[in-house]
Protein backbone atom coordinates (compact mmCIF):
# COMPACT_ATOMS: atom_id res chain seq x y z
CA UNK A 1 0.00 0.00 0.00
CA UNK A 2 1.26 3.46 -0.87
CA UNK A 3 0.51 7.03 0.04
CA UNK A 4 -1.71 7.83 -2.94
CA UNK A 5 -4.94 9.80 -3.33
CA UNK A 6 -8.16 7.91 -3.98
CA UNK A 7 -11.65 8.46 -5.30
CA UNK A 8 -14.49 8.66 -2.75
CA UNK A 9 -15.66 5.17 -3.72
CA UNK A 10 -12.16 3.73 -3.25
CA UNK A 11 -11.96 5.40 0.16
CA UNK A 12 -15.15 3.72 1.30
CA UNK A 13 -14.00 0.35 -0.04
CA UNK A 14 -10.68 0.74 1.76
CA UNK A 15 -12.37 1.52 5.10
CA UNK A 16 -14.62 -1.56 4.72
CA UNK A 17 -11.72 -3.81 3.76
CA UNK A 18 -9.52 -2.66 6.69
CA UNK A 19 -12.33 -3.14 9.21
CA UNK A 20 -12.83 -6.67 7.83
CA UNK A 21 -9.10 -7.40 8.23
CA UNK A 22 -9.15 -6.49 11.90
CA UNK A 23 -11.91 -9.06 12.38
CA UNK A 24 -9.78 -11.83 10.87
CA UNK A 25 -7.81 -11.67 14.04
CA UNK A 26 -5.99 -14.17 16.10
CA UNK A 27 -8.52 -15.87 18.43
CA UNK A 28 -6.14 -15.61 21.39
CA UNK A 29 -4.76 -18.51 23.30
CA UNK A 30 -5.96 -20.69 26.12
CA UNK A 31 -2.55 -20.84 27.84
CA UNK A 32 -3.53 -18.69 30.82
CA UNK A 33 -6.67 -20.79 31.37
CA UNK A 34 -4.57 -23.95 31.13
CA UNK A 35 -2.00 -22.62 33.57
CA UNK A 36 -4.68 -21.79 36.20
CA UNK A 37 -6.54 -25.05 35.54
CA UNK A 38 -3.51 -27.35 35.84
CA UNK A 39 -2.11 -25.35 38.76
CA UNK A 40 -5.39 -25.58 40.73
CA UNK A 41 -5.88 -29.29 39.98
CA UNK A 42 -2.24 -30.07 40.84
CA UNK A 43 -2.29 -28.15 44.15
CA UNK A 44 -5.70 -29.62 45.10
CA UNK A 45 -4.44 -33.14 44.40
CA UNK A 46 -1.27 -32.44 46.40
CA UNK A 47 -3.20 -31.06 49.41
CA UNK A 48 -5.65 -33.98 49.25
CA UNK A 49 -2.87 -36.61 49.15
CA UNK A 50 -0.89 -34.93 51.96
CA UNK A 51 -3.96 -34.53 54.18
CA UNK A 52 -4.97 -38.16 53.66
CA UNK A 53 -1.44 -39.45 54.29
CA UNK A 54 -0.44 -37.25 57.21
CA UNK A 55 -3.71 -35.99 58.77
CA UNK A 56 -1.82 -32.74 59.35
CA UNK A 57 -3.90 -29.66 58.53
CA UNK A 58 -0.73 -27.56 58.08
CA UNK A 59 -0.67 -28.86 54.50
CA UNK A 60 -3.58 -26.47 53.84
CA UNK A 61 -0.94 -23.70 53.56
CA UNK A 62 -0.18 -25.19 50.15
CA UNK A 63 -3.40 -23.56 48.86
CA UNK A 64 -1.53 -20.25 48.81
CA UNK A 65 0.66 -21.69 46.03
CA UNK A 66 -2.28 -21.20 43.62
CA UNK A 67 -2.46 -17.46 44.23
CA UNK A 68 1.30 -16.93 44.33
CA UNK A 69 2.27 -18.95 41.24
CA UNK A 70 -0.81 -17.88 39.24
CA UNK A 71 -0.45 -14.25 40.30
CA UNK A 72 3.16 -14.14 39.08
CA UNK A 73 2.66 -16.16 35.88
CA UNK A 74 -0.51 -14.40 34.63
CA UNK A 75 0.94 -10.91 33.85
CA UNK A 76 3.99 -12.49 32.21
CA UNK A 77 1.85 -14.76 30.01
CA UNK A 78 -0.59 -11.98 29.26
CA UNK A 79 2.19 -9.65 28.03
CA UNK A 80 3.56 -12.43 25.86
CA UNK A 81 0.13 -13.06 24.36
CA UNK A 82 -0.43 -9.32 23.61
CA UNK A 83 2.97 -9.14 21.94
CA UNK A 84 2.15 -12.17 19.80
CA UNK A 85 -1.15 -10.76 18.50
CA UNK A 86 0.15 -7.17 18.09
CA UNK A 87 -3.29 -5.74 18.69
CA UNK A 88 -5.66 -5.16 21.56
CA UNK A 89 -9.33 -5.06 20.62
CA UNK A 90 -12.14 -3.61 22.73
CA UNK A 91 -13.26 -7.14 23.67
CA UNK A 92 -9.68 -7.95 24.80
CA UNK A 93 -9.76 -4.84 26.97
CA UNK A 94 -13.15 -5.73 28.52
CA UNK A 95 -12.22 -9.37 29.22
CA UNK A 96 -8.89 -8.34 30.72
CA UNK A 97 -10.72 -5.91 33.05
CA UNK A 98 -13.19 -8.65 34.03
CA UNK A 99 -10.30 -10.97 35.00
CA UNK A 100 -8.55 -8.17 36.92
CA UNK A 101 -11.80 -7.73 38.90
CA UNK A 102 -11.79 -11.49 39.64
CA UNK A 103 -8.18 -11.26 40.82
CA UNK A 104 -8.89 -8.29 43.10
CA UNK A 105 -12.06 -9.96 44.49
CA UNK A 106 -10.07 -13.13 45.25
CA UNK A 107 -7.38 -11.15 47.09
CA UNK A 108 -10.04 -9.29 49.12
CA UNK A 109 -11.81 -12.60 49.94
CA UNK A 110 -8.49 -14.10 51.11
CA UNK A 111 -7.84 -11.05 53.32
CA UNK A 112 -11.34 -11.39 54.84
CA UNK A 113 -10.69 -15.07 55.59
CA UNK A 114 -7.32 -14.19 57.19
CA UNK A 115 -9.06 -11.48 59.25
CA UNK A 116 -11.71 -13.95 60.41
CA UNK A 117 -9.01 -16.52 61.25
CA UNK A 118 -7.15 -13.95 63.35
CA UNK A 119 -10.36 -13.37 65.32
CA UNK A 120 -10.73 -17.11 65.85
CA UNK A 121 -13.42 -17.81 63.24
CA UNK A 122 -12.94 -20.34 60.46
CA UNK A 123 -14.23 -18.89 57.21
CA UNK A 124 -11.81 -20.75 54.91
CA UNK A 125 -14.66 -22.86 53.49
CA UNK A 126 -15.74 -19.76 51.57
CA UNK A 127 -12.48 -19.97 49.61
CA UNK A 128 -13.89 -23.07 47.92
CA UNK A 129 -17.19 -21.40 47.02
CA UNK A 130 -15.81 -18.01 45.92
CA UNK A 131 -13.54 -19.22 43.08
CA UNK A 132 -16.36 -21.45 41.89
CA UNK A 133 -18.75 -18.49 41.77
CA UNK A 134 -16.73 -15.53 40.50
CA UNK A 135 -14.38 -17.36 38.12
CA UNK A 136 -17.24 -19.07 36.21
CA UNK A 137 -19.15 -15.75 35.99
CA UNK A 138 -16.06 -14.13 34.42
CA UNK A 139 -15.53 -17.09 32.14
CA UNK A 140 -19.14 -17.10 30.94
CA UNK A 141 -18.92 -13.33 30.28
CA UNK A 142 -15.71 -13.85 28.30
CA UNK A 143 -17.34 -16.72 26.38
CA UNK A 144 -20.29 -14.49 25.46
CA UNK A 145 -17.98 -11.62 24.38
CA UNK A 146 -15.66 -13.75 22.24
CA UNK A 147 -18.48 -16.12 21.15
CA UNK A 148 -16.72 -19.23 22.43
CA UNK A 149 -19.13 -21.98 23.53
CA UNK A 150 -16.54 -24.05 25.43
CA UNK A 151 -15.99 -21.12 27.82
CA UNK A 152 -19.74 -20.70 28.36
CA UNK A 153 -20.33 -24.43 28.96
CA UNK A 154 -17.21 -24.85 31.14
CA UNK A 155 -18.17 -21.76 33.12
CA UNK A 156 -21.74 -23.01 33.57
CA UNK A 157 -20.51 -26.36 34.97
CA UNK A 158 -18.19 -24.51 37.37
CA UNK A 159 -21.01 -22.21 38.41
CA UNK A 160 -23.31 -25.17 39.20
CA UNK A 161 -20.60 -26.70 41.43
CA UNK A 162 -20.07 -23.26 43.01
CA UNK A 163 -23.76 -22.83 43.83
CA UNK A 164 -23.86 -26.36 45.22
CA UNK A 165 -20.79 -25.59 47.40
CA UNK A 166 -22.39 -22.36 48.59
CA UNK A 167 -25.59 -24.24 49.56
CA UNK A 168 -23.48 -26.82 51.44
CA UNK A 169 -21.74 -24.06 53.40
CA UNK A 170 -24.97 -22.24 54.23
CA UNK A 171 -26.68 -25.56 55.12
CA UNK A 172 -23.75 -26.62 57.33
CA UNK A 173 -23.02 -29.67 55.18
CA UNK A 174 -19.38 -30.55 55.81
CA UNK A 175 -17.14 -30.39 52.76
CA UNK A 176 -15.23 -33.62 53.39
CA UNK A 177 -11.96 -33.85 51.51
CA UNK A 178 -12.64 -37.30 50.07
CA UNK A 179 -15.61 -36.17 48.02
CA UNK A 180 -15.27 -32.41 47.84
CA UNK A 181 -11.65 -32.09 46.65
CA UNK A 182 -12.20 -34.49 43.69
CA UNK A 183 -15.34 -32.49 42.83
CA UNK A 184 -13.30 -29.26 43.04
CA UNK A 185 -10.70 -30.72 40.65
CA UNK A 186 -13.37 -31.90 38.19
CA UNK A 187 -14.97 -28.43 38.27
CA UNK A 188 -11.63 -26.75 37.44
CA UNK A 189 -10.88 -29.29 34.72
CA UNK A 190 -14.27 -28.56 33.08
CA UNK A 191 -13.95 -24.84 33.64
CA UNK A 192 -10.35 -24.22 32.56
CA UNK A 193 -8.44 -27.22 31.26
CA UNK A 194 -10.96 -28.45 28.65
CA UNK A 195 -11.89 -24.94 27.33
CA UNK A 196 -8.17 -23.98 27.36
CA UNK A 197 -7.29 -26.91 25.07
CA UNK A 198 -10.30 -26.19 22.82
CA UNK A 199 -9.31 -22.50 22.46
CA UNK A 200 -5.69 -23.47 21.69
CA UNK A 201 -6.85 -26.01 19.11
CA UNK A 202 -9.03 -23.37 17.41
CA UNK A 203 -6.16 -20.85 17.47
CA UNK A 204 -3.88 -23.41 15.81
CA UNK A 205 -6.46 -24.05 13.07
CA UNK A 206 -6.83 -20.31 12.50
CA UNK A 207 -3.08 -19.77 11.99
Amino acid sequence: MEDKKMTEKESLELITSMIKRTRERYIGDGNILLMWGYLTVFVTALVWIMLVLTHNSAWNWLWFLIGIVGGIATPIMSKKSDRKSGVKSYSDKITSQIWITVGVASIVATLFCIGFALKGFNAWGMMFAIPLLIVPMAEISQGIIVKEKSLIIGGAIGLCVGLFTFCCLVGNVRLLINWFLPLFMVAFACMMIIPGHIVNHKARLQR
Partner: peptide, 30 residues
Protein backbone atom coordinates in the same frame (compact mmCIF):
# COMPACT_ATOMS: atom_id res chain seq x y z
CA UNK B 1 -7.23 11.23 6.00
CA UNK B 2 -7.76 11.27 2.25
CA UNK B 3 -4.64 9.26 1.53
CA UNK B 4 -4.59 5.50 1.06
CA UNK B 5 -2.18 4.41 3.78
CA UNK B 6 -3.23 6.97 6.40
CA UNK B 7 -6.89 6.10 5.87
CA UNK B 8 -6.09 2.37 6.13
CA UNK B 9 -4.26 2.93 9.42
CA UNK B 10 -7.08 5.06 10.82
CA UNK B 11 -9.71 2.48 9.77
CA UNK B 12 -7.80 -0.23 11.63
CA UNK B 13 -7.24 1.90 14.73
CA UNK B 14 -10.93 2.85 14.81
CA UNK B 15 -11.84 -0.85 15.11
CA UNK B 16 -9.40 -1.78 17.87
CA UNK B 17 -8.24 -0.30 21.15
CA UNK B 18 -4.56 -0.25 20.17
CA UNK B 19 -2.29 -1.88 17.62
CA UNK B 20 1.46 -2.19 17.26
CA UNK B 21 3.63 -1.21 14.30
CA UNK B 22 4.15 -4.81 13.12
CA UNK B 23 0.40 -5.49 13.11
CA UNK B 24 -0.32 -2.28 11.15
CA UNK B 25 2.45 -3.07 8.66
CA UNK B 26 1.08 -6.57 8.13
CA UNK B 27 -2.58 -5.51 7.74
CA UNK B 28 -1.86 -2.55 5.46
CA UNK B 29 0.78 -4.46 3.45
CA UNK B 30 3.00 -1.39 3.50
Amino acid sequence: LHSQLRLAVMSILMSVDEADFVYLKEKTES
